[in-house]
Design a protein around this nucleic acid. Structure first.
Length: 298
DNA sequence: AAGGCTACCAACCGCGCGCCC
DNA sequence: CGGGCGCGCGGTTGGTAGCCT
């Protein structure tokens, strides 16, 4: 069965927005707030589809948008986050107040890619150019311009949820591996910008072993984000205390402590940790407060 | 001045996910 | 449980401004 169109295309405008359309949209959202995008165009008297309105608002009209060039600091944050998250533009945008996913995506494709290449770094893998890419990454990403999501069968708990403590332990060990290979510490993160981002004390053989380990134990970066999401406010948790999910969460909580070094007992603002906020590091900036705790770690 | 090329970015498209019935 | 709906996301497209020849 075909999917129903998001709007009546015959009666909708397309292309650039006019000032009048912008004004109508702004006015409507000012009065009624965001949401219900499907019905918004009709209610606001706009001949646009809801998706188009949403996009226009989010990417252009929102009052909290930061216009203008990206700073060097923002560049570095984007690069670091991309090395952790891949092409998860919305997640990256969530860590850069006032920037939209679309804006970051465009900026990445037009500026940062080139910048990294000029530094001798592969913008997709964040490894030195010329270094062998994994077969999985190559197969997943034949054009090298699209998503390089490193998949794992072990950590795909959406399709294969852990059924036993034993499986959870496997998951935990994978997460430990994840930590040791992909989540950079502050020192490691700093080295990400270097053309040779491997540890300087590592011998070539050790590097090759690490590389082989990476190839055999693929890690799902996408999942690592989901795990953070598992640590959500108590009120929103619905799983039973003995469910695989809640047991997994207990592991995740423990593991998250390990992932980020010292045990943190309260919410920490990642923006601050990454240096994008002037906020004290033990406080949440507005951006993190509004993220529903998804990216806080405890 | 005109045409070609490139870079930029707003907007579109298709798909996946979660929620609800 | 399955299907429809609304929303959000990532990839792609297309218009345009700026630069070069």
């Amino acid at each position: 069965m075909g999917r129903s169109p998001c709007c009546e295309k015959a009666h909708t405008n397309k292309g650039a927005w006019t000032k009048e359309e912008d004004q109508r949209l702004i006015e409507y959202i000012r009065v009624h707030g965001e949401g219900c995008w499907r019905s918004l165009p009709k209610a606001a008297g706009l001949l646009r589809c809801g998706k188009s309105c949403r996009l226009r608002w989010i990417n252009y009209l929102r009052p909290d948008l930061k216009r203008g060039n990206f700073t060097e600091e923002e560049d570095e944050i984007i690069i670091k986050l991309h090395s952790l998250l891949g092409n998860k533009w919305s997640l990256i945008a969530g860590r850069l107040p006032g920037r939209t996913d679309n804006e970051i995506k465009n900026y990445w494709n037009t500026h940062i890619k080139r910048k990294l290449i000029s530094r001798g770094i592969d913008p997709q893998t964040h490894r030195p150019l010329g270094e062998k890419t994994t077969a999985a990454a190559t197969a997943k990403n034949p054009t090298s311009t699209t998503t390089t999501t490193i998949k794992t069968t072990h950590l795909d708990f959406k399709n294969n949820p852990p059924q036993s403590l034993a499986e959870i332990n496997v998951l935990k060990s994978n997460l430990d591996f994840h930590h040791s290979t992909f989540i950079p510490t502050k020192v490691e993160a700093a080295s990400l910008e270097e053309p040779n981002c491997t540890s300087s004390s590592m011998t070539t053989d050790e590097e090759q072993q690490q590389q082989q380990k990476r190839e055999t134990q693929e890690v799902n970066l996408e999942l690592s984000i989901g795990l953070a999401g598992a640590i959500r406010p108590e009120s929103t948790r619905t799983s039973s205390p003995n469910s695989a999910e809640s047991r997994l969460q207990a592991v995740v909580t423990t593991t998250t402590h390990q992932l980020f070094g010292s045990v943190v007992t309260r919410a920490v603002c990642l923006c601050c940790q990454l240096g994008s906020s002037q906020q004290r590091s033990d406080q949440l900036c507005r951006n993190c407060q509004s993220s529903n705790g998804v990216y806080r770690y405890y």
